[in-house]
Design a protein around this nucleic acid. Structure first.
Lengths: 209, 209
DNA sequence: TCTATATTCAATTATTTTATTGATTGTTTG
DNA sequence: CAAACAATCAATAAAATAATTGAATATAGA
């Protein structure tokens, strides 16, 4: 085998994998699946894309072995192929933040109207003056959550907010930096007179035992 | 700003960066530049591409802030923009190895005729029965090398091999898994009756103080 | 068995990337 | 100043990818 052929093939294989991730919807899917398996329909709804497009992009991810599919009844549930896929996606996101200051700037601008530009890190939390609330759908909470978090899905926040303490600071988190549930939750809670803040939590922290 | 617009832009920015890496020559360039700055001409020669193509791909990397350029005389030297770029590239490579067993298989097949399918890790080395040889060009050696390595560029191996010890095992390394200098060196040295092996060394290990 | 539903497939068009060529710019050197 | 050289630019054709649409498949439930 020729040296040049070898290099072309080797770098080419890696480039193919990079290309498989190089698509907004495909990245959003990976980000979603980090929170647990999902059916095509769920992802299509959340990503506001058609079933056909969503399925098409899922095929790309599947063909590159980034996700695995399992058929249950007439639905197909997809999941990340492994922990490493999530790590690589986080690495890519971190690199973008690092080389492209526009991304963080843009995220901050988006959060301004919610008053959530400053978010807490999990490290900041200590003591018991906080109530940590996981505002993702219950299924995702059950897949993995911060040890001391309670589940109040965003959809039920209005009806359940009555049971929340007014003497403690409430800290809400959701799927991550690109998820808006926590922003909406914080905005709503503050309007209802609660002390509320948004927190950035990585999936690894949610899955840690 | 609309939630959907926000997500599309955010994921889109990250996807753009992934796309910037999704090209065999661009990846080869990043891999090369991890060993120190290089002119366009050098990279074109090593990558066996035209100056125009190489320059074109370098523009893509530069526009995405993965590399930086510095003009010296009539040459332009490029370098990795930061350590993080290298980390992300390694992460991508690791993910490919993990999800695509074909890559490692292919690398092993290529090495077979050189007898270098088994390579040593830096962790394996202990004691002083080894002579570690860096077979990259001197400039790359000077940019960073294993603490106990001597520099014998592949091009000069034939003329300098006389000074190598026959009672010690020789361990050769080069730019990494996709570089073939060490393979050629090991093959040559064994043919000359030396005990030689190839070692996989990461750039981080070469740059560590 | 028939119908509704979830998903995938297939085909087409639009859009982006890639590869290649030759011209152009800027710098050094004779 | 002219020649040689490194690098980039600009333009084009070829190839790959993306988006969209409607049909096809498979399963569950009536």
């Amino acid at each position: 085998m020729d040296k040049r052929t070898f290099k072309n093939h080797a770098y080419g294989e890696i480039a193919s994998l990079a290309r498989a991730m190089a698509h907004p919807l495909r990245l959003e899917i990976l980000d979603l699946l980090a929170n647990g398996p999902k059916s095509v329909e769920e992802m299509a709804t959340i990503g506001q894309a058609s079933m056909a497009s969503t399925s098409q992009q899922l095929q790309v991810l599947k063909n590159n072995r980034l996700v695995v599919a399992e058929k249950r009844g007439k639905q197909v549930f997809y999941a990340l192929a492994s922990r490493q896929v999530y790590d690589a996606w986080m690495g890519l996101k971190a690199l973008t933040s690092h080389v492209n200051p526009f991304l963080d700037q843009y995220i901050r601008t988006f959060r301004e109207p919610y008053g959530t530009e400053q978010s807490l890190g999990t490290a900041t939390l200590s003591g018991s003056d906080y109530l940590v609330v996981d505002v993702r759908p219950v299924k995702e909470y059950l897949h993995g959550h911060l040890p001391d978090a309670v589940s109040i899905p965003m959809e039920q926040l209005a009806e359940l907010s009555g049971s929340l303490p007014r003497d403690k600071r409430i800290v809400a988190y959701c799927r991550g930096e690109m998820c808006t549930y926590a922003d909406e939750a914080v905005k709503y809670l503050r309007e209802m007179g609660f002390q509320a803040d948004r927190m950035d939590v990585s999936i690894s922290e949610m899955l840690a035992k």
